[in-house]
Write a protein that binds this DNA or RNA. Structure first.
Lengths: 233, 233
DNA sequence: ATAAATCATCTGGTATGACCAATAGGGCAA
DNA sequence: TTGCCCTATTGGTCATACCAGATGATTTAT
């Protein structure tokens, strides 16, 4: 007779509504949100539930909340550097290896698929990021950011949004662990050259639209990273 | 000289601390947390930031917050049915296909790996879940829960925690969309038989420790699901 | 004695209003 | 024009209060 009313928490409803706005394009990446007080008033809720909703959205990677600045809508592309899940994996060598394993599976497929489906724009992005990586290395920087962006760009070139979203989570996990590994790695200059060359191979393969080559290039790269990590531990 | 103090938000610190407790095993899946007021007092913070921390933990899949009940620690295994990300994918046919694509990649690998690494316990779990699925079907239920558990069990049998965690997110997305698809699917009884047989094939292959067969069985299953979904849309 | 109804208590969800620290932007002074 | 300072505004936090529903023990009726 009567359908039970949802009685959902306000925060969840707000989350849904805002995701809807983002999906519809009424909120675009880069847009900044009004202040919390303003949003709360417009929605007719108080700040605490609103803040919980923002927390959730931050957690899901849709927005970035910055102290004393307005929150901004992120692109799914922007990986969340402060993902708390990082804490789970950090310092756990076994998990780093497991993470690499998962990356091998997904990224080898992504590279092959990107070779087929990448748009000109996707390839342009990859080239740019590669240049950034090259510059970072020459400036004796670790280039972790550029590296993560490079791999993320590959995922995006598959035109698979779901995959991109998962990848951004995975790579955020990577971001922290990388920093330590690389510091050791770069005590030998040759490693830099090798890494750069591996990335170049991946880029070339995708540009040449050669799926098999791209897959192999990625696997070579990840195997190299893994062997280095395993030997170090 | 002086290291800059973190000045992190309380909520983030709480999240880290609780994840630490879970990692250390001092909080085990199934344990119920004290009440919010109690935790807040012990931590020396007020409820709002504490609640934001709990929101984050819920979002990450570590705990489940239930109205008027105490929050409980979840196993990474337990997929969160109310994952807000569901709302993004829901009703978006393109994303459902993308999701299936990602599952093919991960799950075919997982099935093969499970065939190699599954413990006796893992296989026992799979058998039990398969029986549940069979029972549900015979009782004219949709068996979405059992289905999700079945596939999740395969991921867990790979002994890769990172993968299991990702999978639980993916399968939570699936959970909602499945319900609709199946209702249509089961208007024809033959589909039930076929699904059951496909699951049995997967189970058998893993039990026989035959990675290639397991991989093929999974792909057959997912291809079947995809074709059904694509034709329906 | 047992089963059912009752009620105080506890829970999470929300509201309100206040304060803090740090930033951004405008106005002021040089 | 340039550089500094001040203030309004922002997110982060606290304290308190109230609500509605679940819990569990107590009381009541059988």
């Amino acid at each position: 007779m009567f359908t039970t009313l949802p009685r959902k928490r306000f925060s969840d409803e707000i989350v849904e509504q805002m995701i809807g706005l983002i999906k519809d394009g009424r909120l675009k990446p880069g847009d900044s949100l009004p202040s919390e007080r303003e949003i709360a008033e417009k929605l007719g809720v108080s700040r605490p539930p609103l803040r919980e909703a923002l927390k959730t959205l931050e957690c899901l990677g849709f927005i970035e909340v910055r102290q004393r600045r307005k929150s901004v809508v992120k692109s799914v592309a922007d990986f969340s550097l402060q993902n708390p899940l990082v804490k789970v994996i950090q310092g756990d060598a076994a998990m780093v290896v497991q993470l690499l394993e998962v990356r091998k599976i997904l990224e080898s497929w992504a590279a092959a698929e990107a070779s087929r489906l990448a748009t000109e724009e996707n390839i342009q992005t990859l080239e740019t990021v590669y240049q950034d990586l090259d510059r970072d290395f020459r400036n004796d920087e670790l280039g972790v950011d550029a590296d993560v962006r490079f791999h993320l760009s590959i995922y995006q070139a598959t035109q698979n949004t779901v995959l991109s979203h998962i990848a951004s989570t995975l790579l955020a996990l990577l971001h922290q662990t990388q920093r330590v590994t690389r510091q050791v790695m770069f005590t030998e200059t040759v490693n830099k050259e090798r890494l750069l060359q591996q990335h170049h191979a991946i880029l070339s393969a995708i540009r040449e639209r050669n799926p098999e080559k791209a897959r192999e290039a990625i696997l070579t790269h990840l195997d190299y990273a893994e062997s280095y990590f395993v030997n170090r531990s």
